[in-house]
């Protein structure tokens, strides 16, 4: 009786602790984002006010200014957005195609130096992008692809391939090889067996790899800030710099642009979320 009670109490306490910990974690993750959204709708005075103003007022001034003329704090939002889209989507598609082939090869085939090759890829991923920015800048400048979509896409593909290989390798490894064997016996070529059976089954894995690659490219700043110069190629993260002047920073405008940046990422995540959560359904094998 007594013991029952203590155990029940302990379980209650644990539950409460669990809840508080979860709340704190979510707060830490969400508050900066919330802060950005809030600030994008507040007058500059209020953002800078000390002590802080607790009851926010609402204004669309920053958005109006951002889309306004170049003279009144406007930035070429549409160009930046288009650049970001072109670069992120293209580099993601290419990285997924290459990375998926690589991941599949690592998962299915045996070849010499496989382990070393794999570790090498992962090490490559461990090099911080900033450290590469200067060498890349010099090389790109010589080759003449500085300040182009192509240059940035190339850099992002290189950045995303190792991670995609690693992720899709894990997913393909979980698919029993009997699936493609069954497909081959059913009349498929190796190529058909992949596209008709293994790829659809690994779809969720590929989708998560794609979203990671997309977000990496979409948010990347360090390389982009070096490799792009003009309105024709600057991406949105680099565009944020337009709000910094010599002595002032237009926080409100920056937040407004940041909100515009977050929205597509958010939409994409919601669209793909189903696949991310669905995980792999391995009902086809074993009982």
């Amino acid at each position: 009786m007594d013991r029952n009670l203590t155990h029940r109490n302990r379980r209650r306490v644990l539950k409460a602790v669990h809840f508080v910990a979860l709340f704190l974690t979510m707060a830490i993750i969400c508050i900066p984002g919330l802060w950005i959204v809030l600030n994008s709708f507040r007058p500059t005075v209020e953002i800078m006010a000390k002590p802080p103003v607790w009851t926010p007022s609402f204004t669309l001034d920053h958005y109006r200014a951002m889309f306004g003329g170049a003279g009144e704090g406007g930035v070429p939002v549409f160009s930046y957005f288009r650049n970001s889209m072109i670069v992120s989507v293209t580099s993601t598609v290419i990285a997924i195609l290459i990375g998926m082939s690589g991941g599949y090869a690592f998962a299915r085939y045996r070849f010499k130096g496989k382990g070393a090759y794999f570790v090498g890829l992962m090490l490559f991923r461990a090099v911080p992008g900033v450290a590469l920015s200067l060498p890349l800048f010099i090389v790109f400048a010589r080759v003449g692809i500085i300040d182009t979509h192509f240059g940035l896409i190339l850099a992002y593909v290189a950045m995303n391939v190792p991670f995609t290989v690693w992720l899709t390798d894990g997913f393909f490894r979980q698919i029993p090889k009997e699936l493609h064997e069954a497909a081959e016996i059913d009349g498929c070529t190796r190529w058909q067996a992949f596209w008709k059976v293994e790829f659809p089954v690994a779809r969720s894995g590929v989708a998560s790899a794609a979203i990671f690659a997309f977000l990496t490219s979409w948010n990347e700043f360090a390389l982009a800030s070096q490799l792009t110069r003009s309105v024709g190629s600057k991406t949105m993260p680099v565009g944020l710099l337009d709000f910094t002047a010599e002595f002032t920073i237009n926080w409100g405008g920056m937040c407004a642009l940041a909100v515009l940046m977050i929205i597509p990422a958010l939409i994409l995540t919601f669209l793909v979320q189903k696949h991310l959560i669905a995980g792999l359904t391995f009902g086809g094998v074993k009982g």
């Binding site: 029993p176 699936l179 081959e184 016996i185 089954v201």
Partner: peptide, 20 residues
């Protein structure tokens, strides 16, 4: 000859049904 040209069919231990 590849499996598809042998006109055989096979049942696997783990069944290998196409899950999708």
């Amino acid at each position: 000859l590849p499996p598809r040209e042998r006109n055989i069919s096979m049942v696997f231990q783990n069944y290998a049904l196409y899950p999708h």
